[in-house]
């Protein structure tokens, strides 16, 4: 009951925090995706496969660094506020995208690339018409986990003034106000689940049907 009345009494505040949260998420995801794809495309070009493999192991290690660390480092080098928070999230959100896109593109079977080359596709055509569409399920998986991670880390980014729903959790913890804490936690969880659901739908839509059928 406490929670419900808190929700109703603070509806406006919650909604504006939710808006901030979604805004931060969208901006960070867009940047992460664009930068992440650019990096992946760069390191997977022919002749750079070695760099690609190095990036893969670096990203593998980076995935084991807690988000709080990145947020802390950004705090040290950039400061406090929404912008530093977004920078931290972009960097953290990059990791799964680069990891998945790079490994996805590198694992396109060599005979497919050979066939494409043999037919006279240029490097660019090979990338955009063959490699990326075939790697798309893996790439979309990366973007999907990136969005989960960004939403989650955005709550933590509240400590450096990122705002959003994380405020409710931190303040709730500090002031020993369970209803506030729970409100923040539930709202952000719902956001994460809904976004993940939407991303799953998008994934299904953009990935070629030919890659989704099971072998008979």
């Amino acid at each position: 009951m406490n929670i419900l009345s808190f929700y109703l009494n603070n509806f406006g505040r919650i909604m504006s925090a939710l808006e901030v949260h979604i805004f931060i998420f969208l901006v960070a995801l867009t940047f992460s995706t664009v930068i992440g794809m650019a990096i992946s495309i760069f390191v997977t070009q022919e002749g750079r496969e070695k760099i690609g493999r190095i990036i893969l192991s670096v990203m593998g290690a980076a995935q084991s660094v807690p988000s709080l660390v990145i947020i802390a480092l950004i705090f040290i080098f950039v400061g406090i506020g929404v912008k530093p928070a977004i920078i931290a999230l972009v960097i953290y959100g990059l990791v799964p995208i680069v990891f998945n896109a790079t490994s996805g593109i590198l694992s396109v079977r060599p005979n497919i690339i050979e066939a494409g080359k043999g037919m006279g596709l240029t490097q660019n055509q090979l990338l955009w018409r063959v490699k990326i569409p075939i790697a798309l399920p893996v790439i979309m998986g990366g973007i999907r986990s990136s969005s989960t991670i960004i939403i989650g880390s955005a709550t933590v980014a509240a400590v450096i003034g990122g705002g959003g729903l994380g405020d409710f959790i931190f303040i709730g913890l500090k002031l020993q106000k369970p209803e506030m804490l729970i409100t923040g936690a539930i709202t952000v969880s719902l956001l994460a689940i809904i976004v993940d659901y939407i991303m799953a739908k998008i994934e299904k839509k953009v990935v070629s049907k030919g890659l989704q059928i099971k072998k008979t």
């Binding site: 989650g152 959790i169 936690a185 994460a192």
Partner: peptide, 12 residues
């Protein structure tokens, strides 16, 4: 997909 901080808060 639930943020860890949120789950953590709920646990507390």
């Amino acid at each position: 997909t639930i943020p860890s901080l949120a789950l953590y808060g709920v646990m507390v």
